[in-house]
C-alpha cells in the first residue's frame, strides 16, 4: 500500500472530524480562536502519532502473545491517559504560554475519541507498525487542518450579527455541516 496515499486519505478523504465524527468535543470546544486551535491541533498530532505507535506495540508485543486481546480497550485507554499526562508535563516545562492557552483542554485529549479511535482502527484493519503510525499522523493532521479552518470561520462569524437562537453551538454545528459538505468533495478520491 502506498504510504503517502494513507496519509492523504487520513487528512482529506476520511477526515476524522468531518466524516467520521471523532474528536468532536475539542473541535467544538477549542475553536474560538485560530491560535488556540492551532495549539490544540499540534498537541493532538503529537499525542496521536505517539499513541498509535505505543498502542500498536502494546497490542502486538503484550496482548497478542498473552492471548488477552479482549482487554484491548482497557489497555489502550491506559496507554493514552499516561501519554497525555506526559505531554502535559512536557508542555508545562517547555512551552508555558501554550500550556496556559490550552488550559483545561489538554487533559481532555484523553477523552478525545479520535486518539482511541485511531488505536482501535489500526488494530481492526491489521496495519503494520509503519502504517499504524502514519495513519495516526495523517488522521491527526486532518484533525488539525479541520479545527484551524473551523476556528478561522468562527472568528469571522463572531463579528457578525446572527439570529439569537442560533448563537453559540447551533451556528458552530451548521458551520461544521457546511465544511463537511466541502470535504465530501474528496470522497472516492483515494480508495483504501
Amino acid at each position: 500500500m502506498n504510504l503517502i496515499l494513507l496519509i492523504l486519505a487520513g487528512i482529506f478523504v476520511n477526515n476524522y472530524v468531518l466524516s467520521q465524527f471523532l474528536g468532536i468535543c475539542p473541535f467544538l470546544g477549542v475553536s474560538r480562536k485560530v491560535e488556540t486551535a492551532a495549539g490544540m491541533g499540534m498537541a493532538v498530532i503529537f499525542v496521536m502519532s505517539l499513541a498509535a505507535a505505543v498502542a500498536w506495540l502494546v497490542y502486538a508485543l503484550i496482548l497478542v502473545p498473552l492471548h488477552i486481546t479482549y482487554l484491548y480497550n482497557i489497555a489502550f485507554i491506559l496507554v493514552i491517559a499516561s501519554l497525555v499526562q506526559f505531554v502535559e508535563m512536557f508542555l508545562k516545562k517547555a512551552a508555558p504560554a501554550l500550556y496556559q492557552a490550552l488550559g483545561v483542554f489538554l487533559p481532555l485529549i484523553t477523552t478525545n475519541c479520535a486518539v482511541l479511535g485511531v488505536a482501535v482502527l489500526n488494530m481492526q484493519k491489521g496495519y503494520n507498525f509503519i502504517e499504524a503510525v502514519l495513519n495516526g499522523f495523517g488522521g491527526a493532521t486532518g484533525f488539525a487542518l479541520a479545527i484551524v479552518l473551523f476556528a478561522g470561520i468562527r472568528e469571522r462569524i463572531a463579528d457578525n450579527d446572527t439570529p439569537k437562537a442560533f448563537d453559540g453551538f447551533p451556528l458552530a454545528l451548521l458551520t461544521a455541516g457546511l465544511m463537511s459538505i466541502a470535504f465530501l468533495g474528496f470522497s472516492g478520491l483515494i480508495k483504501l
Binding site: A165, L173, L174, G177
Partner: peptide, 15 residues
C-alpha cells in the same frame, strides 16, 4: 450522511 448530522443537531438546538 455526515453533514446531515451537524445540520439536524444545529437546527434542533436552535429551536
Amino acid at each position: 450522511m455526515a453533514p446531515g448530522a451537524f445540520f439536524t443537531l444545529g437546527c434542533l438546538m436552535a429551536a
